[in-house]
């Protein structure tokens, strides 16, 4: 009896219960985020290579070598361009898609299912499909454009720097728009109907309701969608690695792929870690700015 009472008291204590629920997440974050992050910092100051795991202090030598490398600066610039442009289109198309998804029409659930497919498809699989779609010889996109008389020869999507950049951005946008759309759809569904009706009665048209009612009310979720889009684009290397391996001539090289190529392909894990670490402060700044904007909107 006493034991049962003791257990009941234990479960009734909010502090204990809270920690019990939080513990799996905390363990997960420590094991799969904090430890690798700590290792990356440690490796950045070491001369660890893929063939020699022994730890020797190297000070700032890896940082100096990375900063001397023009490919690093090119990768940093490409990463910023990819992320910014992708984020813009992800939010734009996500908003449009969310508006379509909340509308009432027959087959709405089928459409929602289909829209989510790009997000649920494994990135490696979808990238390989895109590799074929953008193939220099067999590209179906080129074939259609040729049949329509819009082009005479293949465009070599992945062989020309600007087209390669556009292709990588397009694949990122294609992958992440469904996620953004679902997040924003939740925002749209949470707007009280009477607010929209009140705006209609006051004579507000579609665009005015959109910019003065819908967007301000859903801004926090739009920001969350943008943040997710930015993080997934910024840290992803699968699309670049499978489509272009950073080519042509490093035109699509991003920090994540260059870190992998330098650290694993080249065997210099110390330099790879330095490059990877650069993702952190940039992501931190982006996350802080976006979350601060969200809080400001909520307090308005």
């Amino acid at each position: 009896m006493a034991d049962v009472a003791h257990r009941t008291r234990l479960v009734d204590r909010d502090g204990v219960l809270g920690w019990m629920f939080l513990a799996p997440t905390v363990v997960y974050v420590i094991a799969l985020v904090a430890v690798p992050f700590g290792l990356a910092i440690a490796f950045a100051f070491s001369d660890v290579t893929s063939g020699d795991p022994t730890y020797d202090w190297a000070g700032l030598e890896n940082f100096r070598r990375v900063f001397d490398d023009p490919v690093f600066w090119q990768s940093l610039w490409n990463t910023l361009v990819f992320t910014t442009v992708s984020m813009f289109f992800i939010v734009l198309f996500g908003k449009i898609l969310a508006n379509i998804l909340v509308a009432d029409f027959r087959g709405k659930w089928v459409v929602r299912f289909l829209v989510l497919l790009p997000w649920t498809t494994p990135v490696a699989l979808s990238s390989v499909s895109w590799l074929w779609l953008l193939h220099s010889i067999y590209s179906p996109i080129d074939w259609v454009l040729r049949e329509l008389g819009l082009i005479e020869t293949n465009l070599y999507w992945l062989g020309r720097p600007n087209l390669a950049m556009a292709s990588v951005i397009a694949v990122h946008v294609w992958r992440l728009v469904p996620l953004a759309a679902v997040i924003m759809m939740v925002g749209l569904l949470s707007i009280p109907r009477d607010m929209d009706e009140a705006a209609r009665i006051d004579g507000a048209g579609y665009w005015r309701r959109m910019f003065e009612v819908t967007i301000p009310l859903t801004f926090p979720l739009i920001a969350v969608a943008a943040l997710f889009g930015a993080i997934f684009t910024f840290t992803d290397m699968a699309v670049v690695y499978i489509l272009t391996r950073g080519g042509p001539n490093n035109a699509t090289q991003v920090l994540a792929s260059w870190s992998f190529l330098r650290g694993i392909g080249g065997g210099d894990i110390g330099q790879g870690a330095v490059i990877a670490l650069f993702l952190f402060p940039l992501l931190l700044i982006a996350a802080v700015l976006i979350l601060r904007a969200v809080r400001r909107m909520e307090t308005l």
Partner: peptide
Amino acid sequence: TDEVFAWNAAS
């Protein structure tokens, strides 16, 4: 052509 800048090992 520009194709040669886009190749992977199988191309």
